[in-house]
Design a protein around this nucleic acid. Sequence first.
DNA 1: TAATTTCTGAAATATTTTTTTCAAAACGCC
DNA 2: GGCGTTTTGAAAAAAATATTTCAGAAATTA
Lengths: 288, 288
Amino acid sequence: MSNGITADQLMQRISEEYEGLSKQLKVIAKYIEEHRNTLVLERITDIAQACEVQPSAIVRFAQRFGFSGFSDMQALFRDSFAPVQSNVNNYQKRIRTVIASQNTPLSNTELTQSFLSACQQGLEELSQSLDPAAIDAAVELLHKAENIYVVGVRRMFPIASYVCYALQHTQKRVHLISGLGGMYHDQVRSIRENDLMIAISFQPYGRETRYCARVAAQNKAKLLVISDSKMSPLARNASTVLTVKEGTAFAFRSMSSTISLCQALFIALSYRLELVIEETQDAGAYDD
Amino acid sequence: MSNGITADQLMQRISEEYEGLSKQLKVIAKYIEEHRNTLVLERITDIAQACEVQPSAIVRFAQRFGFSGFSDMQALFRDSFAPVQSNVNNYQKRIRTVIASQNTPLSNTELTQSFLSACQQGLEELSQSLDPAAIDAAVELLHKAENIYVVGVRRMFPIASYVCYALQHTQKRVHLISGLGGMYHDQVRSIRENDLMIAISFQPYGRETRYCARVAAQNKAKLLVISDSKMSPLARNASTVLTVKEGTAFAFRSMSSTISLCQALFIALSYRLELVIEETQDAGAYDD
DNA sequence: TAATTTCTGAAATATTTTTTTCAAAACGCC
DNA sequence: GGCGTTTTGAAAAAAATATTTCAGAAATTA
């Protein structure tokens, strides 16, 4: 029965019709207004107890506003909850409704907005889930290493190549394991103790990357893993694991969080090395 | 029975003991790690379904870690659940004060937070400044092109290589102008009318990219430019220009907006091509 | 490869949670 | 104060959700 409105709209209606409610329903209305954030977590009995009414009163409240029952109303709050309350990602809700209604095709801009909002969400989450110890450890590894090998394949190759580019601005020797000419094996071969390998790998965890990480471990090199999970197959041999959960829209994973984390890591390293960041200098020219 | 530990401690234990878990329990462990934020909202059957296991497996998992059952474990997540109020750019303020006061050196995590917040801001700005007409035009160019040449150098090479990777999932012929072996000239040579070049270039506008764009124009190919300004030297010959202003922190430009825009563009194209986005399929394997 | 152990899937059972029902209480109106 | 109406509380019924059980499958070991 759930009418296709948003939590905000519901709250609006509740406050409009508040005066016409019975004493008991007013109590419930107030409670709901006050606890809208935690409402999804509570059972009908919890709310009933908090309002000092019977569970049936809650059901009546929900029905008064057009829901089939309490569960139906709660679902509304659940939906409006999942995306962290951030200004932009109302788009996601809107898009979902548009998709659900199936008739209006999405415009390119709507698609883009929606995806960007997923990216922002991903960054938000990354920001909140940073593990200071892991970051410190990662910076330390970078700081100490003389030779750094970087590997990432397919979707993650751009990231690896960026990391490489950035590190090239330090004094370190940086090696991008590109697999050019099928030479993964030959490119990792020379890694040694005291060297560092940065392996960037997300589901489904490319074989090449797993292989390289294994070689690094065998050769007793340090291994910094950037992945989506502490339980990724690469984590086993890692000296440090940095985890990134990317935002998703249309079953499509963003990359903004991963690349941003890598950039941040580089900034932290530069700071540590007391390096002036000179990213914009134009290297050698191309003779046209 | 609930043992008095926190959600973080539990996650810690899970990743420590991960290797010793059975196949099924590993799947569940991963799912839990990935969805710890929304776990409180889900029913045991939801999780079971998502993991493609029986509900009983979830219970076994919980019991494996000392809970009396699923409900018991879920309670833990409920407790550690704080309705994350968007506390985004509080960091920026804090960092500014820290910098102002000059004595405390910034921690790696503070640096990272601060940079991530700049990224978010960049995305926010991009999201608000999208030009629907330009996006439509860009998608149209992509849609019509049979052959697509992609160029970007140095800092923008990772972006170019990503664009290439993504487009490879369509039927189009995609050519990355990598400059490998110094062969920029030879790689663009063959571009023709009705082909499309995507040129990604930001200040200080790499010569190679400018060169390629010029060749494209000479050969009457279409040119899609992704840049920081409508007045960039590349814009002159462009069929369409998409502009991106990246966020900045510590005099360091982020890349999240640019890459996100490229991804969004690809999504829009896929939608247009009615392509099912199958990004995760593992391509050929590497024989170790 | 046979025996043993561990793991998994499906269904039965138990529990919790929600909804419905209905009688009693409160309220408003004449 | 009596009468009809609305509101409320308690408990029964229904539905949803979680847990246990157990037989068969898979993995491990001898």
